[in-house]
Simulated scan of single mutants.
Amino acid sequence: MAEPNLFGGIEAGGTKFLCGVADENGVVLDQIRIPTTTPDETLSAASAFFARAQGRHGPLAALSIGSFGPLSLRATAPDYGSITSTPKVGWSQIDLLGHFRQTLDVPMALDTDVNCAAVGELLFGSGRGLDTFCYVTIGTGIGVGLLIGGAPHGGANHPEAGHIRLPRAVGDQAFDGICPFHGDCLEGLASGPAIRARWGVPAEQLAPGHPAWGIIADYVAGLCASLTYIVRPDRIIIGGGVMQPVNMHEQVRASLERQLAGYDSSVAGLDMNTYVAAPSAGDSAGLTGALAMAYRMITRQWPMHWAIGAQQNAASTLAKVS
């Protein structure tokens, strides 16, 4: 009897790595949460996890990694598979694929963490049934994933829409921004660290009525306006810690409607309540998306049959190991 196909996935974040192994039915068999410290420590712990998991469950058929970036994703590039010039201290020029190829002889794929989260939303969340949508995360950094024609978009490399420059929000002209590369790009103005640098406390400690939220909403809406006119997606899904206050999506919708200013009847007719949405695939959407991308490498199709059990299993397993 043939062994079942097993798939490995990694959601490589700036604060934690989530690693998991799932079977062909989307049942998560093994999972671990590893703090993101130094590359040697973090990647060695991830490799050790997959070695133990294969000893328990059998060999992997494929591994997919969704990572913070920037990443080198063009297969012909000399640094293909690496994190490049990241603001994350100590992680620039780290060869992710090269590290795991030392211990795993299986097909591997690398994409952005936001593209993997977008796949998770496609399968289990706010992207279900959509052909083209954007997934935006506003947190320690600002990232944008694009699914176009039902597949993650990369082009020459992956998009870096978190580093676009936008008009300064009213009342925010004096802040220089904190991006080490661009200063006052979107990430330099509206990320969690930018909020702390500007107002002196983490975002979660700002009162709901603090004027910061209107300023941040204007910047996020500016990103959404750019995505609307450049990509024209079916939906923009916005998650991340900065979007946690209960009325942030409403503030972004209102600001976006003002910024679009009624231009283009197809845009003017958008229902903002459904066009700008919160994610709904759960905290493990990035890992689930990475597992699904590993499945797709082998089968050439998305695992649409996972669309109940995988999410519930991943969420319950994550609760046990967090």
Rank of each mutant, 00 (worst) to 15 (best):
A48D: 13
C116P: 03
F49G: 08
G154V: 15
A292H: 04
T299P: 07
A310E: 11
Q301M: 04
E187I: 02
Q301S: 12
Q301A: 07
Q251M: 13
G171Y: 13
T36C: 03
E11M: 12
A310I: 02
P211S: 07
P152K: 06
P159H: 06
S92Q: 11
V246N: 05
M248G: 11
Y229C: 01
A278V: 14
V114R: 03
P70Y: 02
L166A: 06
E121S: 10
G66H: 01
A151T: 08
I148M: 09
G143Y: 11
T274A: 10
D111A: 07
T228N: 10
T37I: 04
T86R: 04
D105E: 05
T15S: 15
A22G: 04
F133I: 09
Y219H: 06
A190H: 03
R101K: 13
S316R: 09
D79N: 11
N25R: 09
A315H: 07
I138Y: 06
V170G: 03
A212I: 01
L186Q: 10
E11V: 14
T140N: 01
Y263W: 06
L147Q: 04
S255N: 10
E3S: 12
L43V: 00
A225V: 13
C185E: 02
T112S: 15
A281S: 09
T112E: 03
L147N: 05
Y295A: 15
G200V: 05
G55V: 13
A292W: 00
Y275W: 02
M293E: 13
Q312S: 12
G183D: 02
Y80M: 02
D30T: 11
C19V: 15
G90Y: 10
G66W: 00
L270I: 12
D111G: 06
L6H: 06
R52K: 12
T37G: 06
T274M: 01
W213G: 08
S322H: 08
G192H: 04
H249W: 09
R253E: 00
H182K: 00
K16G: 00
Y229D: 00
H249L: 14
L29S: 08
A225I: 08
K16Y: 02
H163P: 08
R56L: 11
G269D: 13
A319L: 14
G143H: 09
T137E: 03
I237D: 09
L97Q: 10
I195S: 03
P233H: 05
H182V: 03
R33T: 14
R101D: 02
H153C: 11
A190P: 05
E11F: 14
G240P: 08
E11C: 12
